[in-house]
Amino acid sequence: PPQTPIRAAMNSIKMLRGDLPSSGDQPSSNLATYFKNCTVDPTQGIQKRLEMLGQVFSQKFGEAVGPHCIVYGRERFTLGVRLYYKVMEAMLESEEKRLSVQNFSKLLNDSTFHMSLLACALEVVMATYEESSFKNRGCSHGEGDQAVRDLCFPWILDVFDLSAFDFYKVIESFIKAEPTLSKDIIKHLETCENLIMEKIAWRTGSPLFELLKREHEAGATEQAEPPAS
């Protein structure tokens, strides 16, 4: 039977929590092996970054929704970290098959990669909760709709001071690596992609302009792609 929007949202949250058990708070033994195989073990760097970003996220969440809701921000961050580790492991397994390598030192020591991946995981968590939590838990202080709007993409980019151009890079690989994503969430990520492609990636300060300038100075030798592709 068709579900009410609230029931559908609650089921999505239940499924998200079910797919991300508490054992995922730390890297799995498989993921830890990828870390150890790196020329430079990224484990400590990843841990420190997560601690720092967790504090930033919770603080910004509280500022957006209300100080009494910081605990919900921490809850969402915890789920985001579990999803981040899960997708990271799946991505590395896929890359290992594709490239026949086990040492991903450069990628796993790239701070931008980790921030982009974590931001994407948190965006999935936020989108899953979007329809139900604030309106049902009384966190709104009379401003429920505004709070939900404030947390919508690209809010997470501002929280992490992450460029849209870098965030965009992880989206497709994220969708490929996580087959349990619902149709609604995939649609949401696609909307984020379109927003970035059409607007946000072209804002002042985007790294895209520097890259385009470098390409232009290097001298384009290939023909431009036809509009169809």
């Binding site: 990669f113 890079k169 497709e172 690989s173």
Partner: peptide, 21 residues
């Protein structure tokens, strides 16, 4: 995910996107 347009080709992946090839 059948409605999502996958743009990366077979020789492309997260490693290339972050200049780790």
């Amino acid at each position: 995910s059948h409605d999502y347009h996958f743009g990366l080709e077979e020789h492309e992946g997260i490693s290339e996107l972050f200049d780790c090839d």
